[in-house]
């Protein structure tokens, strides 16, 4: 049988395409069934689905205004609004099962201990049989407490990853999602690897503020926001390139990278892959066009056929020229 040129693997998890949703930008999957062509989008184009961020207790989220568009970007401060892990497991997760897609649950918390409890809750309630991975959001820049503090401090990152890994074991993949709001991305990356992460994902949003000059005050209710969209793509590509180039585990793909940030075309996806990403996550662009996953897949397909390559062979290609 001919190998599917799009197939990639994150450790032992096989993905039929390298495309994933980015946490927080595609809800809990069941919302997507409202789309007329969701089947082609979800079943065909996606390799895995990443849920929006879940916390231990329900979270109300930040006050209005929560989003503002900036040049080719989106500044958001949603504040992790979600119904808490209990309702997530009982009501939301079961609905995602019918799609037969690897599910990755994105988790957030305010302390390392809470991260551990959250991971334990998922595993103790047998979520391990349903989900394929847990993505630790050590990088949410929106929260007034926690969030950024973990991601910018390598010790904190290592602690959190260790705490989660301790509970999860090898049952599901542990993915650590890094924040770009640091001077040297390899430091938290190395810390996550030391803590035992299986996969790295990067980048989360970049911290930013937008000011309404007519009103003379910040646009967002929370003042600070996280920047996403095409505006941040070069930063994301750079960080993937750095980690792949400088960290041995990344280069030999024992700790593969999921590249995220500003992808809106197949060429963007390929940039990340050539920089060293094994899979890619698409977030904001999907708001612009729900057909994006299909389009990116089509583009990659064409490119691979024309050049007689597989995604696997292209990972990190930009480093070898």
């Amino acid at each position: 049988m001919v190998k599917n040129p799009l197939e990639v693997a994150l450790r032992n998890l096989r993905l039929k395409t390298p495309l994933m949703t980015a946490s927080g930008t595609a809800g809990h999957l069941d919302e997507l069934t409202a789309l007329k062509d969701y089947r082609t989008v979800i079943i065909d184009a996606l390799g895995a689905f990443v849920t929006k961020g879940v916390t231990l207790k329900p979270k109300r989220g930040n006050p209005e205004l929560r989003v503002v568009e900036t040049r080719t970007g989106l500044l958001n401060s949603i504040g992790l609004q979600n119904s808490g892990v209990e309702i997530f497991l009982k009501q939301e997760l079961p609905r995602t099962l019918q799609y037969e897609l690897p599910i990755i649950v994105n988790i957030s918390a305010d302390t390392a201990q809470e991260f551990e409890e959250l991971a334990a809750y998922l595993i103790d309630n047998d979520a391990g049989r349903i989900i394929s991975g847990i993505e630790i959001n050590v990088s949410c820049p929106n929260l007034s407490e926690g969030g950024a503090i973990f991601g910018t401090n390598p010790y904190a990152v290592e602690n959190v990853v260790k705490a989660v890994k301790r509970r999860v074991g090898d049952e599901v993949l542990v993915i650590t999602k890094l924040t770009p709001n640091v001077t040297d991305i390899t430091q938290p990356a190395r810390a996550a690897i030391a803590g035992g992460t299986d996969v790295l994902s990067m980048i989360n949003t970049l911290r930013g503020i937008a000011i309404d000059v007519d009103a003379g005050k910040p646009f967002l209710g929370n003042v600070y926001g996280g920047l996403s969209g095409p505006a941040i793509k070069p930063v994301g590509v750079y960080m993937v390139y750095e980690c792949f180039g400088k960290i041995t585990e990344c280069k030999n793909k024992t700790v593969p990278i999921i590249g995220i940030g500003g992808i809106s075309t197949w060429r963007d996806a390929l940039e990340y892959i050539m920089a060293g990403a094994t899979a890619v996550g698409i977030g904001t662009a999907w708001f612009v066009d729900p057909g994006i996953f299909g389009e990116v897949k089509k583009g990659l397909d064409k490119y691979l056929a024309k050049n007689e390559k597989t995604i696997d062979e292209l990972v990190g290609k930009a480093h070898y020229c």
């Binding site: 930008t25 997507l32 209005e64 929560r66 989003v67 958001n76 708001f287």
Partner: peptide, 28 residues
């Protein structure tokens, strides 16, 4: 009418405060 990003209910940008939350509290 609120600022929107996705329009399909996944991003939680377009919230307004309503009275029908848990335990009589408001929610977004």
């Amino acid at each position: 009418e609120k600022r929107m990003a996705c329009g399909i209910g996944v991003c939680l940008s377009c919230v307004c405060e309503t009275k029908n939350g848990e335990g009589g509290e408001s929610k977004y």
